[in-house]
Design a protein around this nucleic acid. Structure first.
Lengths: 205, 205
DNA sequence: ATGACTTGTGTCAGTCTGTGACAGGAAGGT
DNA sequence: ACCTTCCTGTCACAGACTGACACAAGTCAT
């Protein structure tokens, strides 16, 4: 890896950390791009060359999680019930978080607390994740051997799975720590699987 | 109703119709507030006195639907399983649409087509509806006799219900018409209820 | 190392959304 | 008519973005 790329990664992390600290200190809304750029000592224009906008910074882990979800689903056996595969994806996202460096863990916890204080961000994450959801639905429909546009169940499977994901990750909680989040995540998966009728996700459209 | 209020309602509808037509004609993103204000012959400032922003216009029916959902849930018997009540709410929202005037139906169908062309708007609707979702969760938890912060199931019930709502209303469809939407809505409710294990939403937290 | 080539950065200018403050005018009640 | 209330336009402004351009820093030859 050349000097150029190392420098870029360094700037990227500098922006991320500066933004996170400012968000926590003075709130998400009242933090401006100019302030973030000021701390990192770059021009505001450069900020937008690293992130598409303010919410991109705040929802970085969502993008990452969605990528893992897509990969995991694709790598699961084709004869596994789709919802089961998606729950495996959910576990994979959680595991990835547990395996990350202490620095990344700290960043994630800051973001997590940010979501509690700014519920609008949860909504924005859905907006940002719409494309992922569409692709997941395509993948589920493909596995079910039907066209996504004509199969309500494929949509419902993905909708229920992402719902569970949001309940596990984003609902306010008293103690914000990795073990607590992992516990809630496991409980949510269990609850969701228990609530659904066995075989519901392998029926004909 | 005085002249003042009639005038306001007229302006409100004029803005709505002008915005809708512009959105359909030239796309949501490329339509500016200034253009909308120009057609209605008001100042851009006044636009913001009727609507909080561009997406407020595009998601007007969502607000309305959410209000009906909350009312319906509150009016259902306290011993009815919460998810069942929410599905009744979903039917009530649909029924309200079917009962609306031809003008409102036409507006709704325009908005519905807008959602197909601009998937980002679906996400924004979730962002806008976050507060409603929170209040629904409170209501469900109250009926279950538990505190919302400590009951995952209350969150999951609401999340599943709103998921079903989004699948029924917002998934792209080939034929966009009231009968087609009503049919899909009914099918989604049926599918959701069939997919869940009976009694799942009345268990202890 | 010196050159040419690529790529990241700052500056500048501009658009669009959204908001607060103020003044004038239309509607409502007496 | 009169006073109050509410609505509206104008002005001024902040903040999120974007395109264009010139310059500097990194990269890769010879």
């Amino acid at each position: 890896m050349g000097l150029r790329e190392r420098k870029k990664e360094k700037t990227r992390l500098a922006i991320l950390d500066a933004a996170l600290d400012l968000f926590v200190e003075q709130g998400y809304e009242s933090t401006t791009i100019e302030q973030i750029a000021g701390v990192v000592d770059i021009s505001p224009r450069t900020f937008f060359r690293y992130f598409t906008g303010k919410d991109h910074v705040a929802l970085l882990f969502h993008d990452h999680g969605e990528a893992i979800l897509l990969e995991t689903f694709a790598s699961r056996p084709a004869d596994e019930p789709p919802f089961t595969s998606l729950m495996h994806g959910m576990r994979a996202v959680m595991q990835d978080l547990l395996d990350s460096t202490p620095e990344d863990t700290a960043r994630f916890l800051k973001l997590r607390r940010l979501l509690d204080d700014n519920p609008q961000l949860v909504g924005r994450s859905v907006a940002r994740g719409a494309e992922t959801e569409r692709r997941l639905t395509e993948a589920v429909a493909a596995r079910r051997g039907v066209a996504a546009e004509e199969d309500l169940l494929s949509h419902l499977i993905v909708a229920f799975a992402t719902s569970a994901m949001r309940v596990g990750f984003e609902c306010p909680m008293t103690e914000v720590s990795m073990p607590a989040i992992a516990r809630r995540m496991a409980a949510t998966i269990e609850l969701a699987e228990r609530s659904l009728r066995p075989g519901w996700d392998v029926e004909a459209g």
